[in-house]
């Protein structure tokens, strides 16, 4: 009897191992194909010309495969959206975790999370049809499909991520810390700024970086509202063409296993490295500054 139970235990262990292994195997396979389909473009252009070339004309003859404007666009869109989303997300989280009454919290928190369930194509459509004409009228810019519009839409998408993870981080600050702070005569506000926020800083940073990595990889929104001009923008109201938009727009028509096709996969590799980098930073911060109990502040 005992032996059988042990055997069953072993089998279950293996089954779980296989399930865990499948996702890793899939990741490795995708990576392998990404690299295999992306590397050949470097027989055509040097890595330096690819990364820092200023012109993206993949179909002209001779073609130019410079993704510098696309990289700049991706980074700018991410930074600008972070500038909008971080204050919004973190402050909402502080309000929800520390200030809001239970009733307000019960209504507001699911609402913020509902924002995350909006499909990105809906947000993109909103940006294209409502926000773009609005920007044209209000700021008198030539086109509303621009860097600013894309950043705004991406901020909408990363606020729920930032807010939810931040709220968890703030809520997990040990109550003793707050009690001690209040007992020393600090006001609620002083406790939040001097104790709660520093104690949850690693969680907040993780939240921000995960929010940003969501923004940099987002495709549909930037495809619809960023404008799509492959140039280094000179103002926040210039149209841009981030990497995911370029890949999504061109992949369908690129000749199979042609140089353009390889170049798009190589762009995907660069994009993957950016998100990987963001995730590593998030991981590093959350490990390094992990709050263990109340004693490590």
């Amino acid at each position: 009897m005992g032996k059988r139970r042990l055997a069953k235990d072993k089998v279950i262990q293996y089954i779980f191992f296989i399930f865990a292994f499948v996702s890793i195997a899939i990741l490795c396979m995708i990576l392998y194909f990404l690299v295999r389909e992306g590397i050949p473009v470097f027989g055509q252009v040097s890595v330096k010309d690819f990364l820092f070339g200023k012109y993206w004309y993949p179909t002209s003859d001779p073609p130019d495969f410079g993704i510098f404007p696309l990289i700049v666009a991706s980074l700018l869109v991410t930074v600008c959206s972070a500038a909008i989303a971080i204050p919004l997300g973190v402050m909402t989280a502080i309000y929800l975790a520390e200030i809001a009454s239970t009733r307000v919290k019960e209504i507001a928190k699911p609402m913020v999370e509902l924002l995350a369930s909006l499909p990105s194509v809906v947000i993109g459509f909103f940006g294209m049809v409502i926000v773009a004409p609005f920007l044209q009228d209000v700021f008198d810019v030539p086109t509303g499909l621009n860097l600013f519009n894309a950043s705004l839409m991406l901020a909408f998408m990363s606020v729920p991520t930032i807010c939810t993870i931040s709220e968890d981080a703030i809520a997990s600050v040990p109550i003793e810390l707050k009690e001690a702070s209040l007992a020393l005569g600090a006001t609620h506000w002083e406790s939040i700024v001097r104790v709660v926020i520093p104690a949850s800083l690693s969680g907040l940073s993780t939240a921000v970086i995960l929010g940003m990595s969501r923004a940099i990889g987002e495709t549909m929104v930037v495809l619809m509202v960023a404008g799509g001009a492959a140039m280094v923008p000179s103002s926040i109201f210039d149209p841009v063409r981030p990497m995911p938009a370029s890949i999504a727009a061109e992949m369908g028509e690129a000749p199979f296993q042609g140089d353009h096709y390889y170049a798009l996969f190589a762009t995907g590799m660069v994009l993957f490295m950016f998100t990987l980098f963001f995730n590593f930073i998030a991981d590093y911060i959350s490990n390094k500054h992990r709050q263990v109990g109340a004693a490590t502040l």
Binding site: Y55, P69, M128, A229, D238, P239, R241, A249
Partner: peptide
Amino acid sequence: PGALLQASNGAVAQA
């Protein structure tokens, strides 16, 4: 390079 690129006929019409 400053031209806006749209991904479909419909998107151009919309823009």
